[in-house]
Amino acid sequence: MRKHSQPAAARPSYRQALQKCSLSFWAMAPLLLGVIGLVGLFEVLVTPKMLTSLFRDNPIADTLIGTLTGAAAAGNPIVSYVIGGELMARGISRYAVCAFILAWVTLGFIQLPAEVEVFGSRFTLLRNVLAFIFTMLIAVLTAWTLQVLS
């Protein structure tokens, strides 16, 4: 641990730092509980079956649908792999599956209110627009690269 030239009293103890952090987490508890509540609602109301039924066997449209459905879905990323595997087996394009599993983790309509509250609306808007564009871009690039490699 580094020693500082300032007097020891100027530096808070670990206990004080822990108290401060616990308090700021406690302040955020309603926000986190709200998001967790939304996750439960979406997991029940938006089923994997509903998500898979949205794809149309059109690579371009499916990439967009994959991004939007991935962003709307909630839950453990493992579920996105299972659904993605199911979509691939159904013959849905690699673009769409890639966009879907990527959007599942990087985008989230459910956590938008919390993100706005914590980081501000401008940052949240820009981050999500960028993540949306890059999710589709990476999906296309991944599929192209794999085609070239094979």
Binding site: A27, P113, E117
Partner: peptide, 17 residues
Amino acid sequence: PFAFRGKYLLPVVCAAY
């Protein structure tokens, strides 16, 4: 100063439930 965050989100989610 201490203030709870998500004062609007949580009631909305509770109402949805």
